[in-house]
Amino acid sequence: MPGFLDDLLSNPALTTALWPALVETLLMVGIAGVATVVIGLPLGVVLFVTQPGGMAANRAVSVVLSGIIVNITRSVPYAILMVSLMPFTRFIVGTSIGPLAASVSLTIACVPFFARLVESGLRDVQPGKVDAAHAMGSTRAQTVWKVMLPEAMPSLVASVTTTLVTLIGYSAMAGLIGGGGLGRLAYNYGYQRFQPEVMLVVLVILVLFVQVVQLVGEAVVRRVDHR
């Protein structure tokens, strides 16, 4: 057993390749996570307010955003989306490989997912609170910004957590197709070089990563939840 452990600890896959791979994964998840929230939050709000019967009901916007863009993007499997986005990625970041390039497709895959979670979070705000906000003379923007988003905060934080966990999963997949990171490490060493122990280590790291994200997310929810 000590022999196995020595082998493992002296394996260059772990001594030299693991750290950069971990950084790449963190980079991908970090960039895509921030971009997803920045784009997905307003998109979720727009989906909510433009739906039929919504605060700013707009059939055309609702059909295009919700019915076409979000639903279609969500029905394309990530691996396929990633490959098909390569020309677009090259146009945006100049290359189609590496963590930065992977962040583009990760963001595009996760924005509709997160936007839907935001939309349903807003839908769960009691209509009475929205009535109260209007009756006191709030504009629609004030109602969304000062009432609905704060009231939906626990659910929004939970949605960010869920989205990050999804992103971690996708990022490993992105590694296979040039994204780099832990996914590529596991594939190159664990699969192609028949080193299942490397695969196992990557697996453990990913599990720990998800656990940490989930725990932190739940702690923040408890902090912001006054219900």
Partner: peptide
């Protein structure tokens, strides 16, 4: 209307306070 609304206070059945 928003200005005019300040002349009218509304009390709701379930108070409808903001939990946050």
């Amino acid at each position: 209307l928003r200005r005019a609304r300040r002349r009218l206070g509304v009390v709701f059945q379930h108070a409808n306070l903001f939990d946050s």
